[in-house]
Design a protein around this nucleic acid. Structure first.
Lengths: 340, 340
DNA sequence: CTGTTAGCGCATTCAT
DNA sequence: ATGAATGCGCTAACAG
C-alpha cells in the first residue's frame, strides 16, 4: 500500500489525464482566462471521471481569498437572531460565498474569542448579529474587512450597521392600545440586561412614553415594571404590579417572552385575558399565535434584515456602498386585545 | 490582542525577530517537539510583540488537518436541534477543534450540497444531526472520516449513531396518563412528515399503543389522529377529533408544537384544560412551562446528546471506540394533567 | 535540540 | 491560448 495509491486527486492528476498543464486546468476551473474548447471539455471530463474536488486550503492560500463570510451570532436558538440567520443564509445561497458561523453565547469573552477565530479563518466578509463587542474593535476591523452589524446600532459605523427602529415599535404598540380605548397601560421593560439589548429595550420604553404623552395622558411610574426579558420575570412583574394596587386594563411588554410570563401570572390570579386585561408583546415569536388567547405583538422583520445584511457585505466586497434601510416592527393583531 | 495583526506577519518574521529558524517557531507554537527554554520564550515574546496569528490555510495545507469538526444541522431554530447544537458547542469548547456549521434546511438537495461543502473543507470529523442523507452516503463517508449521526438511527452504523428511545418516551407519557386514571386517551401522531422524523414519531406511537395494551385496554382507532408536527395541525386534529364524537379525557401529542395547537383548539371550543381534558406533549420546548396551563411533556436530553456526540467524534479521531448510550426522554409534570 | 530542505495543492505571474 | 516557473505560509522529514 503506497502513499500514491491513496493520494487524493489533485489538479496534476487531472492535468495529466487531460493532456494539458496544471495552469490550464486551473484556468478552466475558475474561468480566469479563455481556453480552447477542446481542452476545456477534456478537462471537465477528467474532473468528473476522477471525481476531483479542489483543495480549499490550497486555493485560499494561493489566492488570498477564503470565499467565506463569517457570521457571529449570540446563541443559536434565540428566535429573533435565528430569523436573521435564515435571512443571511438565503442572501448567500446563490452566491459563491459560504457562511462560517460562530456563536458568542452572550458571553463577552466567548464572543471575542469567536470573533478572532473567524478572523483567523480569513473570512472575506463579516456579519455580526447583536453582541457586545467593543465599538472600537468593530471599527478597527471594519477598516480592513467588509463588516456589517445587524440588530445593533453602531454610532461610529452608520454605513455598516443595520437595525430596527425600536422607538417606533414601542410607540405603535402603545398607540394601538390607546386607540382601543385603554388608558391605564402597563409597560414591562428590562433596563438591566446585557449592554446591547438594553438600548433596544430602552427605545421601546421611550416609544411607550411618547405615545402616552401624545394622547394627552400622564405618565405614571406605578404602571412601569422592570423585568429581564426572561419569561419568569414577566411572572414576577405582574405579581409586583398587582401588589401595587394601581388599576390597569392593558399590558405592553418589551418582548414576547415576558408577555408569556405575564399571561401565566394573570392566569394564576384568575385574571382573564383579554376580558379583564389586554396584552401586547414584541417579537412575534413562533409561539405567539398559539398562546391562549393568541398574542397581539410587534413582528420584527428578522429574515429581511438578515438578507439585507448579506447583500450589504457582498456590496462592500464589491466596493459598492450598501443600501441600509431602517427597519420597523409591524403590529400583528390577535385576540389578546379587546376594545375597552 | 488586537485586530491589526491578522495581516501579514508570518512565521518568518517572528523567526527573524527571535533569532531562530522557522521550524523552531513552528515547534514551539504547536508543541511538536522540545525546544530550549531560552528560544522558547524568545519566540513567544516575538509572537505577542508582532501580534502574530498563524495562517490557517497554510497550516492545514501543510499538516493535512483542518482542526475542524463539521456539524450538519437542519434549520437553525428547531428547538430540539438547537439543544443538540449547544451540547456540541459545549463538548468542543475546551478542545482544539472548532465547529463548522452547515444548514440542510430540511431540503434533501441543500443538505447534500452542504454535506459536500463540509467535506470539501476537509473537516477532520463530522456530526450530522438528523437529516435525510442516504444511509449509503453516510456509510461511505464513515469509512474515511470520523462520523457521528445524532437524533437518527442508522442501522448500518450502530457505532456511529446516537439517538433517543422514542418508544419508551411514548410509553411513559401514556403510562402516566393511565396512572392518573385516564382511560380514553387520544394520540396525535404524524405519519407523513419527512423520512427521518417519521421513524421517531412512529416509535412514540408504538409506545402509546403498547402502554394501552399493557393496561389491559383496547386500542381504538377513533382515538388516533394524524397531524404533521406543525402547530396548526394540532388545531385541525382536535377539530377532527371532536367531530368524531368519541369521548376522551386526555390527549398525548407526538410533539409540543401540536400540543400547542391542540390547546388553542380546545380553548376555542370552550373545553377547559386540564379540568375537561388533560394534555401531554413531547420535547419540552422553552414555551411549555409558560403555556396556560403549563404543559406536561417529555423532555429530550438534547444538550447531553450533543455533548456526547462531540466526545464521540473526538474518540473516533483518537481511534478509540466511542461510548454511545441510548438516551431517554423524561417526563416533566406540570399542571396540564389532572387525576381523572 | 535545531537549522536546512522539501513539499502541501493551487493561482498567477511570466514567457512563449 | 498555454506551459513553465514562482510563491502563498506553514509543517515535517532529514541531517547534523
Amino acid at each position: 500500500m503506497t502513499i500514491e495509491a491513496h493520494r487524493k486527486t489533485t489538479i496534476m492528476d487531472i492535468a495529466a489525464k487531460a493532456n494539458v498543464s496544471p495552469s490550464t486546468v486551473s484556468r478552466v476551473l475558475r474561468g480566469s482566462a479563455e481556453v480552447a474548447e477542446a481542452k476545456r471539455t477534456a478537462v471537465m471530463q477528467a474532473v468528473t471521471e476522477l471525481q476531483y474536488r479542489p483543495n480549499i486550503f490550497a486555493q485560499s492560500l494561493a489566492s488570498g481569498q477564503s470565499m467565506t463570510i463569517g457570521v457571529l451570532t449570540q446563541n443559536f436558538g434565540s428566535p429573533f437572531y435565528d430569523g436573521i440567520l435564515h435571512g443571511i443564509l438565503l442572501g448567500l445561497e446563490k452566491t459563491e460565498y459560504w457562511p462560517l458561523f460562530a456563536d458568542g453565547r452572550w458571553h463577552p469573552e466567548i464572543e471575542l474569542n469567536a470573533f478572532h477565530l473567524l478572523l483567523d479563518r480569513r473570512v472575506d466578509g463579516l456579519i455580526v448579529i447583536g453582541g457586545q463587542l467593543a465599538e472600537e474593535t468593530l471599527r478597527t476591523v471594519a477598516q480592513r474587512t467588509p463588516l456589517i452589524v445587524v440588530a445593533r446600532r453602531i454610532a461610529a459605523l452608520p454605513d455598516n450597521s443595520l437595525y430596527l427602529n425600536n422607538f417606533a415599535g414601542g410607540y405603535n404598540a402603545t398607540r394601538y392600545l390607546l386607540d382601543m380605548g385603554h388608558r391605564d397601560i402597563v409597560h414591562i421593560t428590562a433596563p438591566n440586561v446585557n449592554p446591547i439589548a438594553i438600548d433596544d429595550i430602552e427605545q421601546r420604553y421611550q416609544g411607550y412614553q411618547q405615545a402616552i404623552l401624545d394622547a394627552g395622558l400622564q405618565l405614571d411610574p406605578r404602571l412601569v415594571v422592570e423585568g429581564n426579558l426572561q419569561q419568569q420575570s414577566g411572572v414576577l412583574a405582574v405579581e409586583m404590579l398587582l401588589s401595587r394596587g394601581r388599576p390597569f386594563s392593558a399590558i405592553f411588554t418589551a418582548n414576547d417572552q415576558m408577555a408569556f410570563g405575564a399571561r401565566l401570572a394573570l392566569y394564576r390570579r384568575g385574571i382573564r385575558v383579554p376580558e379583564d386585561v389586554s396584552l401586547v408583546g414584541f417579537d412575534d415569536e413562533a409561539f405567539a399565535p398559539y398562546m391562549v388567547p393568541p398574542l397581539t405583538t410587534m413582528r420584527q422583520p428578522a429574515a429581511e434584515m438578515g438578507q439585507t445584511a448579506a447583500k450589504a457585505v457582498l456590496d462592500l466586497l464589491n466596493k459598492k456602498k450598501p443600501n441600509l434601510p431602517l427597519f420597523e416592527a409591524n403590529l400583528v393583531v390577535r385576540e389578546s386585545v379587546t376594545r375597552h
